[in-house]
Design a protein around this nucleic acid. Sequence first.
DNA 1: GAGTGGTCTAGACCACTGA
DNA 2: CAGTGGTCTAGACCACTCG
Lengths: 257, 257
Amino acid sequence: MSTLNSASPAAVMTSADVATPAFSPLYQQIKTLMTMRLQAGEWRPGEAIPSELGLAARFKVSQGTVRKAVDALAADNLLVRRQGKGTFVSTHAEQTVQYRFLRLMPNDGPVVGAQRRFIDCRRLRAPADVARSLGLKSGDAVINVRRVLSFESAPTVLDDIWLPGALFKGLTAERLADYKGPMYGLFESEFGVRMIRAEEQIRAVSADSLSANLLGLGVGAPLLSVERLSMTYGDKAVELRRGLYSTASHYYRNELN
Amino acid sequence: MSTLNSASPAAVMTSADVATPAFSPLYQQIKTLMTMRLQAGEWRPGEAIPSELGLAARFKVSQGTVRKAVDALAADNLLVRRQGKGTFVSTHAEQTVQYRFLRLMPNDGPVVGAQRRFIDCRRLRAPADVARSLGLKSGDAVINVRRVLSFESAPTVLDDIWLPGALFKGLTAERLADYKGPMYGLFESEFGVRMIRAEEQIRAVSADSLSANLLGLGVGAPLLSVERLSMTYGDKAVELRRGLYSTASHYYRNELN
DNA sequence: GAGTGGTCTAGACCACTGA
DNA sequence: CAGTGGTCTAGACCACTCG
């Protein structure tokens, strides 16, 4: 580790260095360094990172210390460990299990793939509330995508998606429609934007005429309103997604610990 | 560790023992042993468990191995580590932060305490669906509690709670009303039932006349339906809670990783 | 068999708490 | 100050994957 100490690896930063330096353990510092390499694209989604012993040599610490850092990154879903093979940068592209953040489950019957229908994809100026959520200035360029997800031909999810225009130049309805696989896979491979975590605000609302129409329901039908803010590295918000879910034959599943 | 090996601690179970013995690492076995001690009430909620070195001596393993076991139990929220003080059995009683599993947040303004009003607490025979969820036989004794939670005098949550009668003998409306603190604290201290984790199914529904009345809304108003199944040790279901949340001035908050 | 992650140990030292 | 959890090391060996 060349970041903080001078001689031996054990000579870490201590509380004598500064007044209240907020002591940070070595493995935490290495986690930060590795996160920066991931963010910089030095290690690409789907690829293997160096072995633990290799990383230990590079950072001049013991294997146990890089192990703690890698464990933490794996817990954050940034890396995936595979015994006997190596440690890999996680990716949305080979996402076998549904749509990463979508928690909808059928009331009965097996989980089944969704059909997507894109309603429109427009480039426009950010409304005040969208700008605030995404950390933009009101009037900045944003891209607005609307689409419907159907399960077994039953329209179920109406998504209203807002993306910073600066990050997603050239995103069109065609590219969305042509891309096979989850939308986050497209964002990752084509625009270098990786979703790390998200926060959702869930409410119950009544369908207005537009959404009722698109979801094949009556006006006033109860819908789940799911407002999701997705973050990339550094907890930077990069997507605001307002979803309306029909919960007649599906439910939102959550686990509490 | 006297459970599996004979001589040295390092002589753990190997894949040579049986055909496909599903190799379980030492720290995992110790985690299981500690969980059993917790379940048996040998270490009580709020109390400190032995120090890591003490546990290491007792189980005849190294400190590092018990550390992994304790880390896992702390990750499951069964234990709480406090540097310099010790490791404690977590408890619902001194739960400073709201109601453990309740994810409701005010749209704006600070989090504020709730007022509780108990509507009734009856002992009756389990309906088929309740019995199925709780792993009982249809017709077994259950306790049904209904109550309303209000925030700043606005009724917001209508809970319909089902508990196995065998586990909660003597639970009455009086004891519920008299108990200060969260309901799960009462369950823990008076009935020895600790909620470990829960699963929720969330839907949007329309208020019927009864729930509309109790929540001060119009009939047909959209409500969040939250059906929660809570589990104790061994993933045994011990509470079915059907909640109706008014999401006019609150939202259900969820974090996705 | 070589290379990877996974487990376990023994021992040193650090940070935090409370008497 | 003693006692607790937290970090870090060095080294051994095990389990898994793949050529």
